Computed example of a mutant assay.
Amino acid sequence: MTNNLYLQNGLRFLLLVLAQVLIFNRLNFLGFINPMVYILFLYWYPIKPRRSVFMLICFFLGLTIDVFSDTLAFHTVACTTMAFFRPAIMRFVFGVNYEFQSFRLSNTTRVQQIAFLTFLILGHHAIFFLLEIFSLSHLLLLLKKIVFTSVGTLVVGTLMLTLFSAEKE
């Protein structure tokens, strides 16, 4: 069972990195919107495994994207930070329920799933674009990039979740 989990997460890691690097980094909707679908790894990763291992995996996920995207360490910092805050976001969205053994994302409502994904995306993009622009004198540009890229990522991410998640009966 655990070998299947390792294989599944490794495959997700690889496919999301490839999709991000080969497809989504080349897209420029309206000249500046690039969906960052690799964030779905933070959404799909199991809840119970050790947090330190998860943060290390997210560090390498961000680093891999940075190497192929030539973005200094922006993805690494944003991804690792969101991995750190993921339990707090889950507690906010799902309540204390997520700490129990029987909790599964597939057993939550669609609204809760989208809210969880939205908080992950907004947090990630806020950190990423703050590092990229690194100036509050361009606050309007910063907000424009955060909002529009977040909406683009949320739309594409929701479509991918619908396509690749197990359907409820």
Rank of each mutant, 00 (worst) to 15 (best):
R110V: 06
T81D: 04
L117R: 05
I23H: 10
N34V: 15
R50P: 13
M82H: 05
M1A: 14
Y6D: 06
F84H: 07
L130A: 01
P46S: 14
G152A: 04
Y43L: 10
L143M: 13
M160W: 14
K168S: 10
R104N: 01
K145M: 09
F60H: 07
F92L: 15
P87T: 02
A88R: 00
H125C: 03
I65L: 00
V67P: 11
S102H: 14
S165M: 08
L61S: 09
G123I: 04
H138T: 00
L141G: 03
T64F: 08
I121T: 11
F68N: 01
R50F: 09
V77T: 06
F103C: 06
D66W: 05
S106H: 03
A166Q: 15
L143T: 11
F74N: 06
M1F: 15
Q8L: 15
D70R: 01
F128H: 11
I47G: 02
L7V: 13
P46N: 13
V53E: 14
L120M: 13
T108R: 01
I133F: 10
I114C: 10
C79P: 03
T153I: 05
P87K: 03
I33E: 02
T149D: 11
K48P: 03
L136V: 15
L163M: 15
I127Q: 13
T118P: 08
E167G: 07
L154A: 09
R110S: 10
Y38E: 06
L122E: 01
F74T: 01
I121S: 00
N4V: 04
R50E: 15
F129S: 02
L42V: 06
L61H: 04
L105C: 01
L16M: 05
E132R: 06
N9L: 02
I57Y: 00
F59L: 12
G10D: 03
F134P: 05
Y43E: 12
F85R: 08
I133R: 02
L136Q: 00
L18F: 15
F60G: 09
I39N: 13
N4G: 02
F164E: 01
Y6F: 12
T109E: 03
L139N: 12
F32K: 09
F148A: 06
L161T: 05
I146R: 03
I114T: 11
Y38L: 03
I23V: 15
